[in-house]
Simulated assay, not measured.
Amino acid sequence: MSVLSKIVPMPLHSFILLLVWLMLNNTYSLGHILLGAVLGIVIPLLCAPLRMPQTSIKKPLKLIVYVLIVLKDIITANIEVAFLVMGPMQRIKPGFIAVPLDLCDTLPTTVLASTVTMTPGTVSGEVSSDNKWLYVHVLNMPENEQEVIDLIKQRYESRIKEIFGC
């Protein structure tokens, strides 16, 4: 590890902090540049011990496809939920399900839980302490709960596993 990387462990973050400092103060005077540079070095140094290594994205092009699929699902689910809540209330059958997880790390699990929550009609409730189950609330539970589990695993989890190389 070089001396420079010990002083500036996260150079991009340091540069962004400097830019944000200058934009917040709406000045580019030497004093603010120096203060912003000091903050850009000190803050990442203080935060460096808190960083946790994360799984990296192995297939970024698959991530683009995934985002497009999720956007399409959000639009479709919005329409479905709108018709559901505008209709008779007895048609709504909420429920919880436990989705078994086959993901390798916390970041892919977080991406899956966030995706489920972003899609109208479903909300991630909790991830089990052993990271083996994702508890999901479904606004309109079908007769066969396995349909929802299969949809989440095939449509989202399998793609996340591919993206992160799990």
Results as ranks from 00 to 15, higher is better:
residue 127 V to E: 04
residue 91 R to K: 11
residue 107 L to S: 08
residue 65 V to R: 13
residue 71 L to S: 10
residue 33 I to A: 09
residue 93 K to T: 15
residue 32 H to T: 09
residue 44 P to A: 05
residue 85 V to L: 06
residue 94 P to F: 11
residue 92 I to W: 02
residue 28 Y to S: 09
residue 37 A to V: 12
residue 45 L to R: 15
residue 75 I to T: 12
residue 106 T to S: 14
residue 66 Y to N: 09
residue 58 K to D: 03
residue 110 T to K: 02
residue 85 V to F: 03
residue 90 Q to M: 08
residue 112 L to W: 01
residue 71 L to Y: 08
residue 75 I to Y: 07
residue 117 T to G: 05
residue 79 I to S: 08
residue 68 L to S: 12
residue 47 C to V: 13
residue 91 R to L: 15
residue 52 M to C: 02
residue 29 S to K: 14
residue 111 V to C: 06
residue 94 P to L: 06
residue 128 S to R: 10
residue 76 T to C: 02
residue 77 A to W: 03
residue 29 S to M: 10
residue 125 G to Q: 11
residue 113 A to I: 00
residue 60 P to V: 07
residue 99 V to P: 02
residue 134 L to V: 04
residue 133 W to M: 14
residue 70 V to P: 05
residue 101 L to N: 08
residue 112 L to T: 04
residue 60 P to F: 05
residue 35 L to D: 02
residue 92 I to N: 02
residue 128 S to V: 08
residue 102 D to G: 11
residue 123 V to H: 01
residue 79 I to N: 04
residue 53 P to A: 02
residue 75 I to G: 03
residue 51 R to E: 12
residue 88 P to S: 09
residue 49 P to C: 12
residue 118 M to I: 08
residue 101 L to C: 06
residue 41 I to C: 07
residue 88 P to W: 07
residue 31 G to V: 11
residue 132 K to W: 03
residue 56 S to A: 10
residue 121 G to Q: 00
residue 70 V to W: 05
residue 78 N to L: 08
residue 72 K to I: 05
residue 29 S to H: 14
residue 99 V to R: 03
residue 37 A to T: 15
residue 60 P to K: 05
residue 68 L to E: 10
residue 87 G to D: 09
residue 115 T to Q: 07
residue 52 M to G: 00
residue 56 S to E: 13
residue 60 P to A: 04
residue 32 H to P: 09
residue 89 M to I: 11
residue 34 L to I: 15
residue 76 T to D: 11
residue 68 L to A: 11
residue 97 I to D: 00
residue 38 V to R: 06
residue 42 V to M: 15
residue 136 V to C: 07
residue 56 S to C: 08
residue 63 L to I: 06
residue 129 S to T: 12
residue 34 L to F: 15
residue 38 V to H: 11
residue 111 V to Q: 06
residue 45 L to H: 10
residue 121 G to V: 01
residue 118 M to Y: 00
residue 32 H to G: 10
residue 128 S to D: 06
residue 30 L to E: 13
residue 106 T to V: 09
residue 66 Y to P: 04
residue 41 I to R: 03
residue 95 G to C: 09
residue 114 S to M: 12
residue 127 V to A: 01
residue 123 V to R: 01
residue 91 R to I: 05
residue 95 G to I: 03
residue 32 H to F: 15
residue 47 C to R: 13
residue 105 D to A: 14
residue 104 C to N: 15
residue 84 L to D: 00
residue 122 T to Q: 06
residue 101 L to D: 04
residue 122 T to K: 03
residue 93 K to M: 09
residue 92 I to G: 01
residue 92 I to F: 01
residue 84 L to Q: 02
residue 28 Y to P: 00
residue 59 K to I: 03
residue 45 L to K: 15
residue 56 S to Y: 06
residue 81 V to I: 12
residue 84 L to H: 01
residue 87 G to N: 06
residue 64 I to V: 15
residue 87 G to L: 02
